[in-house]
Design a binder for these strands. Structure first.
Lengths: 232, 232
DNA sequence: TTATAAACAGACCGGTTGTCCTGTTTTGTC
DNA sequence: GACAAAACAGGACAACCGGTCTGTTTATAA
């Protein structure tokens, strides 16, 4: 219904300023948020136009169809989100397992602070659009693939450095991504972030049957119910 | 677009036969399939009516609103699907871990045979509807909860029987459900079932660092690309 | 049979959606 | 400044969707 997210530098009567890149960015900002909060089909271009302070002509000029807009959101924003919150941190971590743990931890902490679970943008769109259109499916599958690839590569680097043994990189990456995706799915549905910590702890407990360090401190906290929060 | 799933015993000119339960079942059949294939918002009641061979008046009589129809699908069909494919097999299995493995195996085999991945009905609807309506969210969260509960209970039973040690039931259940949900999500997006086997193998490999039996035979097969198949 | 309610038929309507189209303004280039 | 292309404005439209409404038929019970 109501919206007014991005700043709209308008309301100047006589003059106009062409700002193609800025306008395009504003539209993508709003579309990304709307797709995340309400999904693709439930997001109307009218709402996007109103929230971004953009007319129909301008929107059509940059994104001829709704599908084109969604494709741009997927390729530019969703892919970037996975890159920022997962790929880069894992690559920068001391090991693949430590990277996975740190991301789980960071996301869980962020959810607890925000008090509202919007879910994983990639999974949200993947579920709604994978079967709807081949172009959507291809774009989304590529992001999933790159995500797993980065984790698998990190495992391989760990193995070459002697930090990891007898772990199939591809399988480990698949499990890490799946566990995160599934945990976020449950966290979103239950509006409760404890499942993320449960999954992370289970993942580490399973691995630590004969592992090395096990210095996880305050792991007693769980099942923290989130307070309600407004959407969008 | 086109549809003609359920048999429609009509076309008899003069007579009519009231069959409330049968008609209701037919509508739920079609709605379940449509929600699964296209999602909630992309499914129009007109298509459902046409596919089920039902008029608007009849549909409205049994399901006053689209939301009521979806709620019935969730509570009666989706919950039953989880019960049949997950809860019952796990309860009937020799142990929780064996139950989880057998379900993963069975689903992967089914996907490879069908050649098409429709995804998990619970996750499909959960992603689209959890944030859309509190009633949807509550219903879906309950199914997730029961799902995890069944696995956790099985772990507890294993522990009392001495088959399982040092495994947090709740955490294990969360990981199992999350891994499955996430794997199905990726399988649906990639239209490729190998991720399911990757996740299962990783799950067992993680646990078998000091485990007991490890009698998995032909685990070499992976990355089997599915042939295309028509939807709905 | 008659009454009574449930089950069903089918048209109808207001609102919304995505897209298109014509026109105007700005911007860059020679 | 002239000109062409890009950037933007804003209305129009046809299709569709979900819900409602009235009326008819079937089943049930007295």
């Amino acid at each position: 219904m109501s919206a007014e997210i991005t700043a709209r530098p308008k309301a100047r009567p006589g003059k106009r300023t062409n700002d193609p890149e800025g306008l395009r960015k504003r539209v993508l900002d709003v579309a990304e948020a709307s797709f995340q909060a309400r999904g693709y089909h439930a997001s109307s271009l009218g709402d996007v136009m109103a929230a971004a302070g953009v007319t129909g002509g301008a929107l059509h000029h940059h994104f001829p169809t709704k599908k084109a807009l969604a494709l741009a959101v997927i390729e530019e924003r969703v892919a970037a989100a996975i890159e920022e919150t997962w790929i880069a941190p894992v690559q920068a971590a001391g090991s693949a397992r430590e990277g996975v743990r740190s991301v789980f931890d960071a996301v869980a902490a962020e959810l607890e602070q925000q008090g509202f679970v919007r879910g994983c943008p990639l999974n949200n769109l993947a579920h709604e659009l994978s079967l709807a259109d081949p172009d959507f499916r291809t774009a989304l599958a590529g992001i999933f693939s790159a995500w797993r690839q980065a984790i698998a590569d990190k495992i391989r680097a760990d193995q070459q450095a002697g930090r990891e043994h007898d772990t199939d990189p591809q399988r480990f990456a698949a499990l890490a991504v799946a566990a995160y995706s599934g945990a976020m799915s449950m966290a979103k549905t239950a509006q409760e972030s404890g499942v993320l910590r449960d999954c992370l702890n289970a993942l580490e407990q399973e691995a630590s049957s004969a592992s090395s360090s096990n210095g996880r401190a305050g792991a007693k906290r769980r099942r923290r119910v989130l307070r309600q929060h407004r959407a969008l």
